[in-house]
């Protein structure tokens, strides 16, 4: 698919999926899903080595992706379906009774691509670190990726995991922060400011990169740099993706108000008119 379509075209379809899923369910979280769309699309359609059709929960021989910020499930489900883990038609079942596409990712319903449940925040970095340890024990050279939110980084467990990953030299763990500066109650700065995240992660002993999270060339380039570093370095990698909450839909951009709110029918149409249908809607 990525050979036929540019990553930007795929990202546009993913954004349409996000809007249609949240509007269809009349609940869900569009803001962070849209801010993380570009680099998650790059991961699933270019960067990661994975086997969507033959996915197995042990992750052996494949790169693994963990969504710590489980509320970005519309984005997660869209890239999983669009990259072949399951039929895109199933996206219509998001948040419906009996669906495998639970409000927040679950393994109880056996959705391919989901390794552990997430949604209660701050836990995914620890789980990903454990998975990276497992790969080391298995002499499996593939990478473990994990996406955390910037607001989520107010959870103390993120920083516990930060120390653990350094202590155990998990150089094939690549964490990504969606640094959109917004959370439910307002801007991150107004709620509990995180300060200089780059200095913080450096101080915790991580190899840290900062990247424009909406520039596809910059995104591909930063992943190349992260991989190159991992060949010789012994630190885990944090990529801070500078993003805009709600990116791609003008009235959702840059505000916390669309963190967890569904658009009305009219707003859905308005949003979709700004997002090109490239791969065909589900």
């Amino acid at each position: 698919m990525s050979d036929q379509f540019t990553l930007e075209q795929i990202a546009s379809q993913v954004r349409r999926d996000i809007i249609r899923m949240v509007a269809g369910a009349q609940s869900g979280h569009p803001g962070g899903s849209l801010s993380s769309t570009d680099f998650v699309t790059a991961l699933f359609f270019r960067v990661m080595k994975h086997s969507p059709k033959h996915w197995s929960r042990d992750g052996k021989g494949n790169d693994m992706f963990f969504l710590s910020a489980g509320h970005m499930s519309p984005l997660f489900y869209s890239v999983l379906a669009r990259s072949g883990y399951f039929d895109v038609k199933e996206l219509a079942e998001f948040r419906k009774f009996g669906s495998r596409l639970q409000g927040h990712p679950s393994v109880e319903h056996h959705l391919p691509g989901v390794y552990v449940a997430s949604g209660s925040l701050g836990q995914g970095l620890s789980v990903a670190a454990g998975a990276a340890l497992g790969k080391r024990l298995d002499k499996d050279e593939r990478f473990v990726y994990v996406l955390v939110g910037d607001g989520e980084s107010e959870e103390g467990q993120i920083w516990e995991a930060a120390m653990f990953a350094v202590r155990h030299k998990l150089n094939r763990l690549i964490a990504i922060t969606d640094w959109n500066g917004q959370q439910i109650d307002g801007t991150v700065d107004s709620v509990i400011a995180l300060g200089d995240l780059e200095s913080k992660w450096n101080a915790f002993g991580w190899k840290t990169f900062v990247c424009d999270g909406h520039d596809m060339n910059a995104i591909l380039s930063v992943f190349d740099k992260a991989h190159a570093y991992s060949e010789t370095g012994d630190k885990p990698v944090m990529i801070l993706m500078k993003t805009v909450m709600g990116k791609g839909v003008d009235f959702m951009e840059g505000t916390h108000k669309w963190h967890g709110k569904a658009p009305s029918k009219e707003q859905e149409q308005q949003a979709l008119s700004q997002l090109q249908e490239t791969l065909g809607d589900y």
């Binding site: 929960r57 042990d58 992750g59 052996k60 693994m64 390794y115 552990v116 701050g122 836990q123 995914g124 970095l125 620890s126 789980v127 990903a128 670190a129 454990g130 998975a131 990276a132 340890l133 497992g134 790969k135 024990l137 298995d138 499996d140 103390g156 467990q157 516990e160 995991a161 120390m163 653990f164 202590r167 155990h168």
Partner: peptide, 28 residues
């Protein structure tokens, strides 16, 4: 020693790391 992992005083992280380790078939 290669199968023992010190977590420090960080029990929440220890629970998560154990869950991650179990995915590849380890029994933490």
């Amino acid at each position: 020693p290669d199968r023992f992992f010190q977590c420090g005083i960080a029990e929440a992280d220890m629970v998560g790391a154990a869950a991650g380790l179990s995915l590849s078939g380890k029994i933490p």
